[in-house]
Design a protein around this nucleic acid. Structure first.
Length: 949
DNA sequence: GACACTGAGAA
DNA sequence: CTTCTCAGTGTCA
């Protein structure tokens, strides 16, 4: 049988995007600061294909200038697409150069997309007797598949699968690949901005194809549909036909398949090596040489193998994953276009040797404890029945102090026996000289506190460590493990099931599985610690870690365990009042609108206001095509239309009721009768804390009505009172100090009202003659500076026009010239170093600071200004919290610190201690950190949180 | 039940 | 113009 020639056509952008996003969590940046992720990702895929398949002919196809025809048909076509990321744009010229050096043809045609070029070439090659493989993950290509044209598709976890006619039939549930066009036209494609039929998703589209065969068939038979769906489809027939056209790949692009040009011959190895060297690719160079060292006329893949390309096992031995069947033909989920590194098949427990043992006899326990006490540093992880440490019970504890090894101590269900067992561990946990390592130790500490065990000694929390190393990333153990150890941990879902109906508790899992899971976590955490301890030193964040975040962890654990007392009865009466007011607003809104509808639905509201009542000629729309009913849009109309103010009031009161008044009483913990928030120490990129379940950092204060909620936060009993201590203007003081702006520093030193002072200088009037409006505008600019102002932003915030805003900002800078210097210095620093930092050296990396896209760059520049200010304030209050906590503990005060709200601390003060506490708190807060501007703290005392202000 | 979107609360 | 969390609606499953 004559050998049939094989042509591979590579969809360049698809692979480049895939490669780029594969590295998105830790982009490859070379010493020149170039982001080479996209180049590396693309080259990895290309070499991979060449190595596996040894094609006779190969070309790489690019888009150029978008599809003119499609834009003409539908102007929104691809319009919503995000700007091509910087890292990809810069990669393109490099990729072109590499391809040239490799003697691989680059196919582009102005005004056509790669899809069209590939489609056209594949049809031409088919006529000449070739088998064509389209290398792309993009499912749109399925429409091109014939007996001789295949998709060659990279799959999740590494490897490829080939889609021929049978695969396409099965995947899309169609008879012919051509129906894929109808399928895509119906369900639409948000990334290509193909609108599709409204209300039709993947499932419905498949149903329609089975029933009607095509878009036209569907539109001709809408009488067979019913309800809402029928109306929608009948109303959108044209949109459907247009969508189908947009989804159709063109086969008449003016390009020619010339077999000779497409031959994959020997690349200019030296030239490629040189380019790789410039880009600082080492592994890739080796890979490249290996790929081409074997001459390309090596025996081609045998025919039998070729038809089952997809079933080839990936080259790397350890490439085996828990996800079953991922290399089979039909598993790839259409809705799950995950983008992972092609070469990043990860290790798992199945592919890594380990020794995880559980301890189930008294003798083993004794031996284990003896051994445990001999260690200097131990990683542990508690397993519990739930996520709330106040209600959960211990199920077991895993320990590891040697990579790949560890022990699991299961706990009896009987809590008396559990307490007996934990007592045996007390000497370990309370040992001052054994270092304890963990991921999110705050949880374990709170859990153990329930059993009256205190965790003493040095701590190392891998989550906190990574937060300091890269605050912009996420810090789940799974993510950390995959990024830093290239290891996929057993997911908790495989043990207890997906959340929802059938999820079980950890204690119902067989102990062998508990062991594998729990010890693996401890093992991984131990390995991460080894990784991070060096990085902390490199970034110089060791001090921040040792002196701030780690000590703070204990403080937060204590605050969370303490909780705060809530006056449920008060909230109940408040709720009833709100109910009445909301009902009466509802009534008058319905009257004004002439019908009843759901006011809480922006969609229905938009239709009433702008279609029925036609309050405005050209209503603003949101990006999803609805009428915008946002606050700023409506308040603009409020003076002209009575109904608007009522709607705004309705919204305000509903929010108040649902989020605070009704929700808070349900958050009271039954066991303690108090509300226990959870402070997240590793989510805010600037270094702030965040609070949730419930969020006690956004309790209303600005409006009279909202403020009432604060009355519900009360002292624990009559012997106590609440103290609120807040830093006055801490962020402005920080920017004044850091910029050395003397005028502003003086104002603070003299104890002036800073906004009035600013207004007096900017508007050139004596401070006592500043009007309310002037002060208010000055205040907005002062805050604007902290956030990185623009005239545009300012005019949005105030009633000033863009020009007036600009003038105001200019005078502002003229008044405070050093501020302007400081801002540009921060931006320059970020450009040079790629990060900015706080007074304590907390870093925030700003990868977009040199972006060529002005919007993206602008955002990074504002971050460069804001992050050090907001972050320094966070640093300072954290120091104060640690010091105050120490004093409260050391002085055996009954007073407890309860809440932190960014620049405010709230205490439950034992009345006899009040005067001492006031002095203590004020002193510690004002002296937490020395700046060239005094820090000023306001104190308030009261029988509830509102009074304390 | 999960997810996207919108809107609104705080510093 | 910065940093967050939460609730309700609507849609697809």
């Amino acid at each position: 049988m004559p050998e049939q020639k094989r042509l591979f056509l590579v969809d360049a952008y698809a692979l480049i995007f895939r490669g780029y996003y594969a590295f998105i969590k830790n982009p490859r940046i070379n010493s020149k600061g170039e982001d080479t992720s996209a180049i590396m990702g693309f080259m990895n895929s290309l070499l991979d294909v060449i190595k596996r398949e040894r094609p006779d002919h190969l070309a790489v196809c690019f888009d150029k200038g978008g599809s003119a025809d499609r834009v003409e048909m539908f102007e929104a076509y691809k319009a919503n697409r995000d700007e091509t990321p910087e890292g990809i744009r810069t990669a393109i010229p490099h990729i072109h150069n590499i391809l040239k050096a490799m003697h691989i043809p680059i196919m582009v045609k102005e005004g056509y997309e790669a899809d069209d070029v590939i489609g056209t070439l594949s049809r031409q090659a088919e006529k000449e007797g070739y088998k064509t493989y389209m290398v792309t993950p993009d499912k749109d290509f399925a429409q091109l598949v014939t007996e001789n044209i295949f998709m060659y598709r990279p799959v999740f976890g590494g490897g490829y699968e080939t889609w021929g006619i049978p695969e396409v039939q099965k995947k899309f549930e169609v008879d012919s690949p051509l129906q894929v066009i109808d399928f895509l036209g119906m369900m639409g494609d948000s990334s290509d901005n193909i609108p599709g039929l409204p209300g039709v998703g993947e499932k419905t589209a498949k149903k329609f194809i089975a029933q009607f065969g095509s878009m036209e068939g569907l539109l001709a038979n809408t009488n067979q549909l019913k309800g809402k769906m029928k109306e929608k489809i009948e109303a959108n027939g044209e949109l459907g036909l247009l969508s189908k056209k947009l989804a159709t790949i063109m086969l008449d692009v003016p390009v020619t398949f010339n077999a000779k040009d497409f031959e994959l011959d020997h690349p200019d190895i030296e030239a490629v090596k040189q380019i790789f060297q410039d880009l600082e690719f080492r592994r890739l160079t080796e890979n490249f040489i290996k790929t081409f060292a074997v001459s390309t006329d090596e025996t081609p893949v045998e025919e039998t193998k070729r038809n089952t390309i997809s079933e080839q096992k990936p080259t790397r031995k350890e490439t085996k994953s828990a996800g079953a069947g991922q290399f089979s033909l039909f598993e790839t989920d259409l809705s799950n276009e995950q983008q992972v590194p092609l070469e990043h098949s990860r290790k798992t427990a199945d592919t890594t040797s380990h020794f995880y043992q559980y301890i189930n006899t008294n003798l083993a326990t004794k031996l284990f404890l003896t051994n445990l006490m001999k260690q200097h540093s131990v990683c542990f992880d508690t397993e519990t029945t739930g996520l709330n440490p106040l209600t959960a019970q211990l199920v077991g504890i895993a320990f590891s102090w040697e990579v790949g090894k560890g022990f699991y101590l299961p706990f009896p269900k009987d809590q008396k026996k559990a307490q007996e067992l934990i007592e045996e561990l007390r000497p370990f946990f309370e040992n001052e000289t054994i270092e304890k390592i963990g991921q999110n130790l705050k949880y374990d500490i709170k859990m153990l506190a329930k059993y009256n065990i205190e965790v003493k000694g040095k701590l190392f929390d891998t989550m906190l460590a990574h937060y300091l190393i890269n605050p912009d990333m996420r810090h789940n153990m799974d993510v950390l493990s995959e990024t830093y150890l290239n290891y996929t941990p057993i997911s908790i879902e495989t043990l207890i099931g997906k959340k929802g109906k059938n999820q079980i508790s950890m204690e119902e899992v067989p102990v062998e599985k508990q062991t594998e899971y729990a010890v693996e976590d401890a093992d991984i955490t131990l390995q991460l610690k080894e990784h991070f301890k060096n990085e902390l030193g490199e970034a110089n964040t060791q001090k921040l870690f040792d002196d701030i975040e780690i000590p703070l962890l204990r403080v937060l654990a204590a605050m969370e365990l303490e909780g705060i007392n809530l006056d449920k009865g008060f909230l109940n009466t408040l709720s009833e009042q709100l109910n009445k007011d909301i009902a009466s607003l509802e009534k008058s809104i319905y009257e004004a609108a002439g019908e009843t509808f759901n006011i809480a639905s922006p969609k229905q509201l938009g239709i009433i206001l702008f279609e029925k009542m036609k309050l405005v000629d050209k209503p603003k729309k949101t990006k999803s095509g609805q009428y915008s009913t946002a606050e700023d849009v409506l308040s603009y109309l409020a003076k002209d239309h009575n109904i608007i103010q009522k709607i705004l009031d309705f919204r305000g009161l509903s929010k108040l009721k649902s989020t605070y008044v009704d929700a808070l009483p349900n958050q009271v913990e039954e066991t303690t009768g108090r509300v226990h928030t959870d402070y997240m120490q590793t989510v805010a990129a600037t270094g702030r804390l965040s609070s949730n379940n419930p969020n006690l950092q956004n309790i209303p204060i600005r409006t009279e009505r909202g403020r009432q909620v604060r009355k519900a936060f009360i002292p624990r009993n009559d012997d106590y009172t609440l103290l609120a201590a807040d830093y006055s203007q801490i962020e402005l003081r920080i920017i004044a100090a850091l910029s050395q702006e003397k005028t502003m520093i003086e104002a603070f030193k003299n104890g002036e009202d800073i906004h009035a002072s600013t207004a007096s200088k900017v508007f050139n009037v004596p401070i006592e003659e500043v009007t309310r409006e002037q002060r208010s505008n000055a205040k907005t600019v002062n805050f604007g500076i902290i956030y990185g102002v623009s005239a545009f932003g300012l005019s949005n915030q105030t009633n000033l026009s863009r020009a007036e805003s600009k003038a105001l900002i200019d005078t502002y800078y003229a008044t405070y010239p050093k501020l302007r210097n400081y801002i540009s210095e921060q931006v320059d620093f970020a450009r040079d170093h790629g990060y900015v930092q706080t007074v304590l050296g907390r870093r925030r990396y700003l990868k977009d600071i040199n972006s060529r896209n002005a919007v993206v760059r602008g955002a990074a520049e504002r971050n460069a200004v804001n992050a050090p200010i907001q972050g320094s304030a966070a640093d300072i209050i954290k120091i104060a919290m640690i010091n105050i906590y120490k004093k409260l503990e050391g002085g055996h005060f009954k007073t407890k610190m309860l809440l932190q709200v960014h620049d405010e601390l709230v205490f439950d003060v034992y009345k006899p201690e009040l005067e001492a506490i006031k002095t203590l708190v004020k002193t510690e807060m004002e002296n937490a950190y020395k700046l060239d501007v005094p820090l000023d703290v306001d104190l308030g005392v009261g029988n509830n949180w509102l009074e304390a202000h």
